[in-house]
Structures are given as structure tokens and as C-alpha cells.
Design a protein around this nucleic acid. Structure first.
Length: 679
DNA sequence: CACGTATGTCATGAG
DNA sequence: CTCTCATGACATACG
């Protein structure tokens, strides 16, 4: 009997929970106010969030003294707590919590319907809850994290319901109830419940509910439909627009139909999947557009977000740029200070270049330039053989210089013009030789400059400066500019590798490695490397320009070298920023895609749960109606009665209105029954 | 040879 | 005004 009442109570509670799930405020107070009114459910913390043993609640139930032996004790507490849960569910906006609450109640229901009861162990219950609430996606950490809050509430609800079940079991046990306080429920309430409630366990009841006990909920529905007749005059068929049918329709919707409930995500799952694919394709497009696989690889990092890592397309520069994103100080020489060293280290690590070999190349380059300038006399201690070899480079050097277009070669004839003016004048594809008839001239100057170059060198630059700077001046075409000390190491690892092991290519190597500006600088006997020219402070640079008695061509060249070097660094930084921005956007796209997938999984999970809730609610509604009796003692049929919630939150069993037939509200009916059975 | 990429350079604007 | 930086555009080298 107690099980019957418990079942009925839980059925009502679950029904109210289900009503709350669809946004209807549930108030069962009016239904139970005859038993223990007022139900101050909203007073104090909800029992769902208190881990108080139910034994302690027995003594503190709003002044009501409940006897521990009372068979209604479990029902009493269960109802109170479950009502608290219903109230705690609150607005429909907290749907996940509500859904979790419903899922919580699914578990004991299952245990009632054949699953092995484990309600006596809260740990077991909680364990079952975790597996229940998460469903088939328990291995999904995201969903677990998302459902953590819901699971917490669910666990509490489960705990409360477990207490109720425990109370039920304890109440059915023979002997004194193990409670500290005395509880007592009026006898008429027990009678009322005995008369009203029955269920599958009703076979335990002696007489009255046998017929109901013979059938399950669905069977009862058919039974009542066929044979039962209520005292209320009504048509045998429900109206077309029936709340119950409406609910049934709502609850009988397939899972996919519940997708429409989410206005924020109106698309169907199939569409969403298509969107995912499209998003992936867009991602790939972006990736392909911005970073081709020939140069970059998308490697999955630890965090799951792929990052761009350069495969050293032409040197370690982009590897440094792409990976060292933190070094994003725009254009600062300090930020780029590590470039030369990194380049050197990388080049050395590759084993493609030895310091000795590079030293030889540098020597050759130096001698080559010296030879070009006719400065052999200044370095008479150099290897004549090497110089002779280097002399063969001269024509090609000149050709290369001639072929260079867009050179901003400020001839001395134009005077020390501003960089812009010189660039405009040099915008044409005129060869360097042709333009450089003056101080910065190269080919023709090679022959005409020796004496002048020697003179300039002697007058403006010290031999020490020349030797040091020339030996270090190999890095203008490389991203290494900042640290002069690093110039002692080879800077050009990109193009050195193919030629480092072949002596025949040294000439080409040197020819390619030396930038045009460096060649010009050497032609003008500027012993400073481009790195030094670019990286030196502006004060020092100005002092250099003004204090050494440089010619106009030298000043112009120095300015251009500095300007171009600065601009080159700026361009590298700009491209680095662009690449970082692209990488960041790509990571953002991936992150959003992952979030979207997670939300889609959550939505799918919710839709499944909601569909199951709908089915459960339909069954529960029928079951509840089948367990109620009208004035004639006959069960209520879903065809003629519906369980609804009023605007005030009251749970009512409403008779289905039919045209021309007066109907009674369920609230009145409920109250009526209560009044009838609780005088 | 065409194409894509990397890099350097120039022009320009802003600080 | 000069210097520096950022950036688009263009040119060139290279695979």
C-alpha cells in the first residue's frame, strides 16, 4: 500500500516536473493542502540542495508531528521534497536543470520497473545518476563538463528521492520505525490515499483496487476507455483541440521535432552537419589560401589546435617568425636581435656549413670586392691566387647589377638628394652602371675608382674598420641586422647550403649573397656592414654621416642602405604579423568549430532527453489519470481528463471540454475530491 | 613556361 | 621637418 501511494505521489511529482519542463509553473499545494497545508515550499533552502538526512526532517516539518511509524511518512517527505525540486526548477530558462531533474526521476522509475533497486546506497545512486545523466556520451568530457551543474542538481534530486524511497522501505519494514521523532498522519489521509491510489503494487491491496492492479498504465487506459463511465456528463470523444492531446502531441513528437524548440538553433541537425562540413571546407580553403602545404604544415599541438609551423622554406627566418609569435615587437631592433644568432645556429646545426668554409667564402667576397675596387694594393698580403679567381667575377657582377631593376641607386651626380627623390629618379630600369657614373657607380667605377677608393678609404675609414666591417659584412640580404657581434658568424644559411660543399660555386655564392647595397657600399669604400648601418642608432648614424667627411655618394648610399634595411625589417615584421594574424584567425576558426560541434552534441543530447521526457510524460499523464477516481469511484480516462497546470502553478486534472457540455475544472475537481475525502 | 612563394624594395601615410 | 614604422603594391628569384 505504501508503494502504491509512493508510486502515485512520485507520479504526480514527476508529472509536475514534466510540466515545469515545458515551462508551466506547477503548484501542487492546492492538491495537498488538505494534508499538510500550508506547504511553505519556498521558505528556506530547498531540500534539493540540503544534504540533510531525512530523519532530521521528520522532526522539523513545519511544526507537524509525524509519527515515524506512519506509513505516509515517506510519501510525506517525498512529496515535500519533490515539490521543492519542482519549485527549485524555476523558470523554463533553466531547462537543462529541469531536464536533469527529470532524468533523475527516470532512474528510480526504472528501478521500479525492473531494474535492481540500489536506492539504499546513495553512492550507488549517484553513480547511476552520473551514467544516466550523461547518457551515451559519458566519455565526452565536454558534455560532462557542461552537464556538471545539471548533474549536481540531479544528484541532489536523486539523493532526495532516494531518501523518499528509503523512507518507503523503512516504513514498510515491520517493527518500530527508526526515527528519532514521532510522526503521525491523520487516518483519513491514509484512507484517502488508499482509496485514491493504486498501481502495479496494488495487488498487495486486499480488495478495492484489484481491477486496476491487473493492468498496467497503458492497459488501464484501454480499460477505462472501453468500460469506465464517469458521473460527469460528457461526450465520449474529446474535442479536437485538447490540451491533453496537445501535450500528447507535443510529447509524442520525435526527437528531431524538438529541435524546433530551440529558436536559437533553428537548423536541423542535417543542416548543421552540412554547415560543419562547409566550415571545414572553409577552414581548409583558408589554410590553403594562406599557408600552402609546400611551405607550412599543420601539426596538431597538444591542445588540439593546430598551429602553423614553418618548414624552413628558405631559411630559419620564418621558422622563427611563425613559432616565436611572442616576439611581436613591431620593428624593434631588439626584437629582431635574435635573428642573426638563430640563423647562424640553424645553419650550423644543419651541418651544411662550417665556419672555416664560410670564412673562406667571406675572404673571397672581401677580396672580390677589393679586387673590384682596385684595392689589391691595400691588401697585398692576400692570396694572389684567390684574388685572381675573384677577378673573374667582375663581369658577371656587373651584369647582375645591370639586370637589377628598380634600384634606388642614387648617383653622385644627383647629389645627396632625399631618398624619395633618388628613388623616383632610379625608378627606371636603367642599369646600375649607367646610373652610377658617379660615386656609387659600379662597373665603370670599378676602373675609375681605385685611386679614389683608396683615397677615400685612407681619408675616411681606418684600416681596422675596413677589415672588421668587410669581414662581417655578409648579412644584408638576411634578416639578421641587429647584433654586430653576431656578424662573426655566417648569416646566410639559406643559400649557402647548396654551395657550401662546392668550391666552384663559391663565386656564385658570394655573388648572390652580397646584396646590391653591400656591393655599392664596398664600391664606395664604406667599411660598415649593412647590418651595422641599419642597426646603429640614428644619432650615431647621423654622426657617422656628418663627422667622417663622407662624399655625397657615400652619404646617399648610407642613407639608402639604412632606409632599405629598415624597410626590409619592417616588411618582415609586417609579413610576420600578417602570418600571425592568419594563424590566429585559423585557430579561432578551429576553436569556434570545436565549440560548435560541442554545442551540437549537447543539443542532440538534449533533444534526445527531451524526446524521452515527452514520452515519459505522456505515459505518466495516462498513468496518473488512470489512478484517479471520479465521484463515482471510476478511474479517469485520458480521453476525458487531462492533467494540466494552471497559471498559478496549480496542478489540476481538467475535464476535457466538449461543445455544449458543461465541464468542471480539474482544480475544482481536485479540491472537490480532497474535500470529499478529507472532511 | 606558368605558377606560387619568399623576399626585397618603393611609395605612402601615420606617429 | 625628419625619422621610423606599417603596409600595400610591385619586382625578382626560386622551386
Amino acid at each position: 500500500m505504501q508503494n502504491v501511494k509512493k508510486y502515485f505521489t512520485e507520479g504526480l511529482i514527476q508529472f509536475t516536473i514534466l510540466l515545469s519542463l515545458i515551462g508551466v509553473r506547477v503548484d501542487v499545494d492546492s492538491y495537498w493542502n488538505g494534508y499538510y497545508s500550508p506547504l511553505e515550499i519556498n521558505e528556506g533552502p530547498s531540500s534539493a540542495f540540503i544534504q540533510t538526512p531525512f530523519h532530521s526532517l521528520r522532526d522539523n516539518w513545519d511544526g507537524y508531528s509525524v509519527h515515524p511509524k506512519c506509513p505516509e511518512l515517506d510519501y510525506f517527505f517525498a512529496s515535500r521534497r519533490l515539490l521543492d525540486e519542482v519549485r527549485a526548477l524555476g523558470s523554463p530558462s533553466r531547462f537543462p536543470t529541469q531536464l536533469s531533474a527529470w532524468l533523475v526521476h527516470q532512474v528510480p522509475d526504472r528501478s521500479e520497473f525492473g531494474e535492481p533497486p540500489n536506492s539504499t546506497s546513495s553512492s550507488n545512486v549517484n553513480a547511476g545518476l552520473s551514467s544516466e545523466s550523461t547518457g551515451e556520451e559519458t566519455n565526452d568530457s565536454d558534455l560532462l563538463a557542461e552537464d556538471e551543474s545539471c548533474s549536481t542538481v540531479s544528484a541532489r534530486l536523486r539523493g532526495r528521492q532516494e531518501e523518499c524511497q528509503t523512507a518507503t522501505q523503512l516504513s514498510t519494514e515491520p517493527g518500530p520505525f527508526p526515527s528519532t521523532g514521532a510522526c503521525e498522519i491523520p487516518k483519513q489521509e491514509v484512507e484517502l490515499l488508499n482509496g485514491q491510489i493504486d498501481g502495479d503494487e496494488a495487488r498487495e491491496e486486499p480488495v478495492s483496487l484489484t481491477q486496476l492492479a491487473l493492468s498496467s498504465a497503458l492497459e488501464q487506459e484501454g480499460l477505462f476507455t472501453s468500460g469506465a463511465s464517469l458521473t460527469c456528463p460528457e461526450d465520449p470523444r474529446p474535442p479536437a483541440i485538447d490540451i491533453h492531446q496537445h501535450w500528447s502531441h507535443f510529447l509524442s513528437l520525435p526527437v528531431s521535432e524538438f529541435d524546433d524548440l530551440d529558436p536559437l538553433v533553428p537548423q536541423q541537425l542535417s543542416d548543421l552537419n552540412a554547415d560543419i562540413s562547409s566550415a571545414i571546407s572553409q577552414d581548409v580553403s583558408l589554410r590553403d589560401a594562406m599557408v600552402t602545404g609546400s611551405t607550412y604544415d599543420m601539426i596538431p599541438p597538444r591542445g588540439g589546435v593546430r598551429t602553423l609551423v614553418a618548414r624552413q622554406p628558405r631559411g630559419p627566418l620564418f621558422q622563427l617568425e611563425s613559432t616565436n609569435s611572442s616576439d611581436s615587437s613591431p620593428g624593434t631592433t631588439t626584437g629582431l636581435a635574435a635573428l642573426p644568432f638563430t640563423t647562424v645556429v640553424n645553419g650550423m646545426s644543419n651541418g651544411m656549413l662550417s665556419h672555416g668554409a664560410l670564412g673562406g667564402c667571406l675572404d673571397e667576397a672581401v677580396f672580390d670586392q677589393i679586387n673590384l675596387l682596385g684595392l689589391e694594393g691595400c691588401l697585398d698580403n692576400m692570396d694572389a691566387q684567390l684574388l685572381g679567381n675573384l677577378q673573374g667575377i667582375d663581369p658577371r657582377v656587373l651584369e647582375d647589377l645591370d639586370s637589377d631593376s628598380g634600384l634606388s641607386l642614387e648617383s653622385s651626380s644627383r647629389g645627396p638628394t632625399s631618398p624619395g627623390a633618388s628613388e623616383v629618379s632610379s625608378a627606371s630600369s636603367s642599369s646600375f652602371c649607367e646610373d652610377e657614373g658617379g660615386a656609387t657607380g659600379y662597373s665603370s667605377e670599378a676602373d675609375s675608382l681605385p685611386s679614389k677608393g683608396i683615397a677615400d678609404y685612407d681619408t675616411t675609414w681606418s684600416p681596422v674598420d675596413l677589415s672588421e666591417s668587410v669581414w662581417h659584412d655578409h648579412s644584408y640580404s638576411t634578416p639578421a641586422f641587429s647584433h654586430p657581434s653576431a656578424t662573426t658568424f655566417p648569416h646566410k644559411t639559406i643559400k649557402q647550403e647548396p654551395f657550401s660543399d662546392e668550391d666552384d660555386d663559391r663565386e656564385d655564392y658570394e655573388d648572390r649573397e652580397l646584396s646590391r647595397d653591400e656591393l655599392r657600399a664596398r664600391a664606395l669604400h664604406v667599411p660598415l656592414s649593412a647590418t651595422e648601418i641599419v642597426s646603429m642608432p640614428v644619432e650615431e648614424f647621423l654622426e657617422l654621416l656628418e663627422g667622417r667627411g663622407l662624399s655625397a655618394a657615400q652619404v646617399t648610399l648610407l642613407r639608402d642602405i639604412r632606409r632599405r634595411g629598415k624597410n626590409k625589417l619592417a616588411a618582415q615584421n609586417c609579413r610576420k604579423r600578417k602570418l600571425d594574424a592568419i594563424t590566429g584567425l585559423q585557430e579561432e576558426v578551429e576553436r569556434l568549430q570545436a565549440q560548435r560541434n560541442r554545442l551540437l552534441r549537447e543539443r542532440q543530447h538534449t533533444a534526445k532527453a527531451l524526446g524521452a521526457a515527452g514520452q515519459r510524460m505522456e505515459h505518466l499523464s495516462r498513468d496518473v489519470l488512470s489512478r484517479l477516481r471520479d465521484d463515482s469511484g471510476r478511474p479517469l480516462t485520458p480521453e476525458r481528463y487531462t492533467v494540466q497546470c494552471g497559471a498559478n502553478g496549480r496542478v489540476v486534472v481538467q475535464q476535457i471540454r466538449r461543445p455544449g457540455v458543461a465541464s468542471t475544472t480539474a482544480g475544482g475537481k481536485t479540491d472537490k475530491r480532497k474535500k470529499e475525502k478529507k472532511p
